[in-house]
Design a protein around this nucleic acid. Structure first.
Length: 602
DNA sequence: GATATCTGTCATTCG
DNA sequence: GTCGAATGACAGATA
């Protein structure tokens, strides 16, 4: 059995070798199939586990030391720093603010490993630490790197930053690319605003850091979380910086753009109120260490704990940020990506949190020109309520959508997964969309800020005007505006369609409004007429009643007058034979009815 | 699932 | 004849 096993392994290696030669695109390195290499890896993992246990023990001791220095405030119930009456700061420098120094001293007193000893042990365990120090990019003098996940006090990032930052850029070219990417990102006005905010915040922090150039400072801000990583993680032999993009989004976030990362910085700052730096940094670095060690389950647990801390607020920040950033980038999304439900707005569709990151800008470039993928069917899926977007779109919609489409995505698939994962973490668990089935019912509740079809069409064809302008400008101004640009046939046709549809849309709205107004007016008139009719009927009834009374009175008067009339013999006239008639001059005559009938006949 | 309503769009008419 | 406004009709989305 012992002999057969190496044979089988040798056969496997041969088979892998053949496969490897046949398919270079396996995406893995030879060492992945190397049994000896894996054995080395296992040994390394064991060493790391031991190291981690030591670190945890140190952490516990450190927390104990911290607690020993805290005093329970009876009023607030909080632990506050215990400051002896006449101890100057020089005597206990940073007792609270620099707990690690105190801890280190205590460790030495306890006979535990000192920091330098840990460093030495790490250097022995991980030969690539030497590579870091000898890296050509590392211009700084060799400083004891914070390779162990020591809690980072506010002063310590100086060391960590200067020592580790170069390792985040394994080669000078990617560093330049990143810088160039940042410059291009910052050329976008919106991002400039965001960067200004970012810079204001980080400038406060940078007072504690060494003074560097603005670009390097920006990088420090952008990747400061990476600098807090253990050096062995950042500069690991098989883990390049860009490989972080293949990690779940909790790992990706540190390498996002400043706009994405800054909220996290604020978050971590705010978290320091409730968490000690030690806890948080240790948690984070331990998580990353564990992931690198392959303890996926453990790292998942740690990530869960991290995610539970970061998830809501961070994702909220991401969503806010993506609203700001991705208007200018969503055109570069890959067309083969499935449309995200409820996210087909220009913001949410392209508003993946990674869109603002250098990696994403590279990734998005792979999508090519959005106009190539333009079609009615595509944009119909992006139906939206455009009213809220049009004003912003007018100024934010740049002519050059393809200017920065020259990048190469380091990890398109990973970013895509990150994008989808982030959306799956949205407020509503939207059903996954099957590839090639973009017809997604759109809801405009949460993601109301999305582009209308015409806006997306204009965006796709790089129309240099806003839809609002196209629609609302007077004819002369519109023609003048169009004549200023050399537009293609498709663009002109689209602009005219947009103007026609926009005008007609407004006209339809006005027409409906008028129709409703007319209906309301007619209903009002109808009510008035009904009231008037009722009043008239009431008046008619009164008049009829009065008429009857007058007739009755007249009849009574007639009979009274008739009864008073006598003939020559004093006899009364019969009402059946005679009747009273009045002439026009007011004279009253007694007329026999027969004669009256005769006169009528005549 | 059926229904009513809203909204965008097209076709047509009118001034 | 062209253009813009107005409007009926239709379809899709939504409540």
């Amino acid at each position: 059995m012992e002999i057969e096993a190496p044979l089988a392994q040798q056969q496997n290696i041969d088979l892998i070798d053949i496969l490897w030669r046949q398919d270079i695109d396996l995406g893995v390195v030879r060492e992945d199939f190397d049994y000896n290499y894996r054995q080395k890896e296992c040994e390394l993992e064991k060493q790391k586990k031991l190291e981690k246990e030591k670190q945890e023990q140190l952490q516990k001791e450190q927390e104990k030391a911290l607690l020993a220095q805290l005093q329970l405030d009876e009023e607030t119930g909080e632990f506050v720093a215990f400051r002896p009456a006449k101890h100057s700061k020089a005597e206990i420098p940073g007792r609270i603010t620099e707990p690690t120094q105190t801890v280190k001293t205590a460790q030495r007193d306890d006979g535990a490993l000192s920091f330098d000893e840990c460093m030495q042990l790490l250097a022995e365990s991980f030969p690539f630490v030497d590579d870091i120090e000898s890296h050509p990019v590392a211009l700084e003098p060799p400083v004891p790197a914070q390779t162990s996940p020591q809690p980072m006090s506010p002063q310590q990032p100086q060391q960590g930053t200067t020592a580790i930052l170069p390792s985040t850029a394994p080669e000078p070219n990617p560093l330049e690319d990143l810088e160039q990417t940042w410059q291009e990102l910052l050329s976008i006005p919106e991002l400039q605003c965001l960067y200004m905010q970012n810079d204001n915040i980080t400038s406060i922090e940078s007072a504690e850091y060494s003074s560097k150039s603005k670009s390097s400072e920006m990088q420090n801000d952008s990747y400061s979380l990476s600098t807090s990583l253990p050096a062995d993680h950042v500069s690991g032999s098989n883990i390049s910086f860009l490989s972080l993009f293949d990690s779940p989004y909790e790992e990706v976030m540190p390498s996002e753009s400043p706009t994405l990362f800054q909220p996290k910085t604020n978050l971590s700052d705010s978290m320091n109120l409730s968490f000690s730096n030690n806890n948080f940094n240790n948690l984070f670095s331990t998580s990353l260490n564990m992931q690198r060690n392959g303890n996926i389950s453990q790292s998942n647990n740690m990530n869960d704990s991290l995610t539970s801390i970061l998830d809501d607020s961070l994702l909220e920040q991401i969503n806010i940020t993506q609203l700001e950033v991705n208007k200018d980038f969503d055109c570069k999304l890959p067309h083969n990506l499935p449309e995200i439900p409820d996210s087909d707005s220009g913001l949410s569709m392209g508003s993946s949190p990674s869109a603002a990151s250098p990696g994403n800008s590279k990734q998005s470039s792979l999508c090519g020109d959005a106009s190539n993928g333009y079609s009615d069917s595509d944009t119909d899926d992006m139906e939206s309520s455009s009213a809220s977007v049009q004003p912003e779109f007018a100024e934010l919609y740049p002519v050059q959508f393809q200017n920065d489409c020259n990048y190469q995505a380091p990890s398109l698939h990973g970013l895509t997964n990150v994008r989808l994962n982030l959306y799956n973490k949205g407020p509503k668990d939207d059903p996954p969309v099957s590839p090639g089935h973009n017809k997604v019912p759109f809801t405009k509740d949460k993601y109301s800020k999305r582009l209308s079809r015409d806006e997306q069409r204009a965006k796709a064809l790089n129309v240099p005007f806003s839809v609002k302008k196209i629609v609302n400008l007077p004819v002369d101004d519109f023609n003048e505006m169009v004549s200023k640009y050399q537009l293609g046939e498709a663009q002109l046709a689209l602009i005219r369609d947009i103007r026609r549809r926009g005008k007609n849309k407004v006209a339809a709205q006005n027409c409906r409004k008028r129709k409703l107004d007319n209906i309301v007016g007619l209903e009002h008139d109808l009510d008035q007429l009904k009231d008037e009719k009722e009043e008239l009927l009431q008046e008619k009834g009164e008049h009829t009643k009065n008429l009857l009374q007058i007739k009755q009175q007249l009849n009574n008067l007639y009979h009274e007058v008739f009864s008073m009339i006598r003939d020559e013999d004093g006899n009364s006239y019969s009402p059946n034979e005679y009747s009273l008639q009045q002439t026009s001059d007011g004279s009253v005559f007694l007329v026999p009815r027969s004669k009256k009938l005769e006169t009528k006949r005549e």
